[in-house]
Design a protein around this nucleic acid. Sequence first.
DNA 1: TTCAAAAAATGACTGATAGTCAATATGGCG
DNA 2: CGCCATATTGACTATCAGTCATTTTTTGAA
Lengths: 217, 217
Amino acid sequence: MAALSRKERERLRRQELILDVAEETINKHGFDGATMDEVAEKAEVAKGTLYIHFESKAHIYLAISERGSRKLNDQMAKVLTKDLSGLKMVENLGATYLNFIKENPQYYHAFNYYEGVVAETKSDPGGIMMKCKENAKEAMTYIVRALQIGMQDGSIDYSYDPKELGLIIWGASKGIINMVFLKQNSSEFELLNEVEFDLESIMQNFIHLVGTGLIKK
Amino acid sequence: MAALSRKERERLRRQELILDVAEETINKHGFDGATMDEVAEKAEVAKGTLYIHFESKAHIYLAISERGSRKLNDQMAKVLTKDLSGLKMVENLGATYLNFIKENPQYYHAFNYYEGVVAETKSDPGGIMMKCKENAKEAMTYIVRALQIGMQDGSIDYSYDPKELGLIIWGASKGIINMVFLKQNSSEFELLNEVEFDLESIMQNFIHLVGTGLIKK
DNA sequence: TTCAAAAAATGACTGATAGTCAATATGGCG
DNA sequence: CGCCATATTGACTATCAGTCATTTTTTGAA
């Protein structure tokens, strides 16, 4: 890949700076509560400069989602290089996602924002929506590959279609994690108020459930 | 329950009318694209009247979410009265949810909106947030009750904690459905572009998966 | 080194829209 | 019938995303 000119590097550096500041501001105030005036002030640029580098406020948030999904994918890729059974790989990928959003709740929210707007977005200046889609696709590819490895090494039932199973496992994991996040981040939102749930143990039970099944033995 | 005065009935009727119009407008344009000016015009009231009946635009959307979750709960309650095994009840509840959001995509979006704001909402004028929470709790109660029935009639493994299992089943179902909705409603968002997924068959596979397990027999 | 063109940056300004409020209209009760 | 409470109105305000004419900076050729 040809080296970028100094000017191009400067431009990208400026964009990363703006994203850093925007990420902090949105993490602190929420997307609606964060203003472009505040982002500009903290980035020490004029507000018009934000629009030189990004199409819109929404575009900035999608760029944040993209960088989060890229970081997540990097961590998921590492799991695939480990010497593990397919089943263990799938478990590890789930744990990787869980740890990632625990450590980076700002990306969790940005992912949700992306999912909320992706269906209704018609145009895609700068291709940021396309990059987000590619990152989502790549994450799914890691899941499917781990399932295929498991089907080959005998740790996973190969009567399932790996792609469909991948969608089920990935979707189910995200749904459960989302539900527990709702519970934890809403002091009054006690779905089942007698028992304190730990997400780790819930995911363990989910893994156990899909591993061995629900029907009584 | 004491009969409401005619004035009180009139007030509630006016509120339902506004919600009907707001629901249509938001369904057509999305939450951000729908304006209070348009809602007022279509409801044939002045804009100030909307704020007599509702705290804010967000409050209206939460009221829409509440009415959707109330309708869903009514349908879920009916499942619990059927003469079915616990396992079949759980399957039926899942199918009920799936059919409900297929027929009422506007409520699907309203539920997502509610989930997105519930964690950061501090005050709750009119108690609409509380009502939404109660409805969510009630839905969970139906799931847990069906699981308990299944554990009693032998159709479900009783080594699981029914409340935790309820969270897993409900969260997983919503996550999978969400993922398939993303796929279907985004013409370019082809997660796995070779295979066309049908949500019905995916849910069937999910049910089969949690029923019999993933580990190779 | 200078100059012209391109690129980047600026921040006052515009437009859109949620939400407000003083004035008016309507309803209910004594 | 009159007074008070309640409901309604729609012009107006406040906020904030996004724009744009102008200025500054950077780049490259002569």
